[in-house]
Structures are given as structure tokens and as C-alpha cells.
Simulated scan of single mutants.
Amino acid sequence: GGSSGGSAASVAAHIVAGATGTDTGGSIRQPASFTGIVGIKPTYGRCSRWGIVAFASSLDQAGPIARTTRDAAILMRSMAGHDPKDTTSVDIAVPDYEAAIGKSVKGMKIGIPKEYRLDGMPAEIEKLWSEGAQWLKAAGAELVEVSLPHTKYALPAYYIVAPAEASSNLARYDGVRYGLRDPGKNIIEMYENTRADGFGDEVRRRVLIGTYVLSAGYYDASYLRAQKVRTLIKKDFEDCFAKGVNAILTPATPSAAFGIGEKGGADPVEMYLNDIFTVTVNMAGLPGIAVPAGKDSQGLPLGLQLIGRPFDEETLFSLGEVIEQAAGRFTAPKWW
């Protein structure tokens, strides 16, 4: 489900009690959703990214993955805070996230965005979303329909901004200073051989896309335009929160986990579409949590996502706990 799939799988399989992950467009929330556990992408700047291999620096955010909302809150308390080694790290006080678990959500306004109702969305995802909304309503929250009109542009804008930053960030892995080095008859050939060997197909594809959109003649038409769209996406959320909405409820993924090699073989865009519900959160720098909420017809876990105001992860933990208590838990039984 994303680059933190290993972290999520090890937590779900009871190999570890919790793990750190990184989320650029959903790589904490999607694997958590697929494995029936909790993953939170904190607000941009809330947790230090120092020591993490940079993918897209304006989108990347570290966060915890755990089997319960409470465990995620405990981990988050330890991870959050200012780090002088990370220039994007924000210096504001870290609340006691665990204290938010079990807090009343009575009177909170929960936005249901109409733009997230996609054509061809599986009926079980629609049903799960509706159930989640009813659980929050039963706990005293108020449901309101909201509009995030620029959502439809989020995926194409993301797949311009993220690869552009990736091509710039990954330029440093040239085989001279780090890791793998393939020989060549001259320095240029050595660079080319090393980077071809050291990066997988998808990484190479993103580096190529990113280099292309940053090139002369395409920068204004692609990258600059995508950044303007990003500003509009962020404003959509700001407008919702200005109307008193405390959090927004959406599905976490458009399907349950799919088989290895099942998607994106001939058409990588098929795989990219899986990010449809998660990328807006990174584009806007907001916190988002994925909480297990049910199973599909094959018994595979499905998750719901809650999107919060900047630096208001506490509300997400309170609301996430309501869903977790109503839905129950879905982690695999111990297998050893």
C-alpha cells in the first residue's frame, strides 16, 4: 500500500508493537488501512524528518503506525516536537495525545465531502463510509456536507509536484558518495550504470517525469501550474475549517488490498489512482489518520480516514477512537 508497507505489515503481524512510517501521498495511511491497523500522517512539520531519505520534501512527513488509536497517540507523543536538524520542523508545544483518547466528540462538526463520491466506487466502500458517519453521529457529532471543489485536480497535481522534487532529491545518489557503485569506462558511464542499477522501475519513472516537468519550456506549464492548484486545494480545506468543521471523514482507500503484481503492470496510472483519497492531505500539509472500520466481502480490512485542522491531531485521535470502538479490531491472529 505504499513505502511504509513493511512497517504496517510488521505491526499487523504482531512482530512489533508499533513502527514509524513516512507519508508523502498516503504511504502511512494506505498500508495501515490495508492491514487493519491505525496510521497517522501528522501535520507537515509536526515530526522531524531528519535522517529520512527525502522523496518530495514539501510533502514528506514521518508518523506512527500502531494496532490501536491509543498506541498511535503514545508513539506520536514521543515522535512530535521541534528538531533543529530539520528546517521544516515547527517549534510548538506537544500536547498529551493519549489524553485525547476517550474524550467526548459531542458537538463536533464532521464534514462529508461530496467530491469524494467517485464514479464506480465499490458499494462496500460507500457503505463503510456511511457507517462511519453514523458511528460519529451516534457519539454526538454533527454531520455536514462540505465541498472540496479542487479535489479532482489533486492527483495530477501531486504526480507533477512529487516526481519533480524526487528527481531533485535523488540526484545526490550518484554512486560516488553513497552505497552501490557500478563501474564504467568513464565517470558519466559510472553514474548512468549506478543509477540504472540502484533504482527500481518506478523510482526511475518518477525521476524521468520529474526531470521532464522541471525542464525548460515545461516548468511553467506543468510544475508552476501544479503549485497553483495545490494552493487552491489548501484553500478548499481552509474554507471548510473556517465554517466550524472540526474534521473531515473520507474513505482511506478506494479498495481493499490487492494482489502483488495485480495493478500497475501495463499502466502505472492504475496504481496511482489508489492515492485518490490520501494525496490532498499532503498537498495541504494537514494531519490525516486511517482507522480500521470493517472488512470487504473477502474478509480483507478496510479503513476510514479523518482529516483535521493543522496541528489538531488530538481531535483526530478522539474521533478515531470512536470509530475503533464501534467497528472493533481486525488485526490478524498471532501466527507463531
Score class of each variant (00 low, 15 high):
residue 238 E to G: 12
residue 319 L to W: 01
residue 159 Y to E: 06
residue 32 A to H: 04
residue 211 T to R: 05
residue 193 N to L: 02
residue 2 G to V: 11
residue 27 S to A: 01
residue 213 V to M: 00
residue 65 I to H: 00
residue 107 G to T: 07
residue 331 T to Y: 12
residue 294 G to D: 02
residue 51 G to W: 13
residue 304 L to G: 01
residue 283 M to H: 10
residue 249 L to P: 07
residue 100 A to N: 04
residue 203 V to C: 11
residue 144 V to S: 08
residue 125 I to V: 15
residue 284 A to W: 00
residue 88 T to D: 00
residue 166 A to S: 10
residue 103 K to F: 04
residue 23 D to Y: 09
residue 334 K to C: 07
residue 262 E to D: 13
residue 244 G to K: 05
residue 303 G to V: 13
residue 192 E to W: 03
residue 79 M to N: 03
residue 228 K to P: 06
residue 115 E to P: 08
residue 104 S to I: 10
residue 249 L to D: 02
residue 31 P to A: 03
residue 133 A to S: 14
residue 268 P to F: 12
residue 299 G to N: 02
residue 144 V to W: 02
residue 51 G to E: 08
residue 164 A to L: 12
residue 257 A to E: 08
residue 261 G to H: 06
residue 58 S to P: 08
residue 174 D to M: 00
residue 79 M to F: 09
residue 277 F to Q: 00
residue 281 V to T: 15
residue 53 V to N: 07
residue 321 E to A: 13
residue 21 G to K: 08
residue 236 D to N: 13
residue 243 K to P: 01
residue 190 M to T: 14
residue 114 K to V: 14
residue 196 A to T: 15
residue 145 E to S: 04
residue 317 F to M: 09
residue 154 A to S: 15
residue 159 Y to S: 05
residue 155 L to H: 10
residue 289 I to D: 00
residue 152 K to M: 13
residue 14 H to E: 10
residue 110 I to S: 01
residue 206 R to Q: 11
residue 185 K to I: 08
residue 304 L to N: 00
residue 3 S to V: 14
residue 232 L to D: 04
residue 86 D to Q: 06
residue 254 P to F: 08
residue 157 A to N: 08
residue 74 I to N: 01
residue 34 F to K: 04
residue 168 S to K: 10
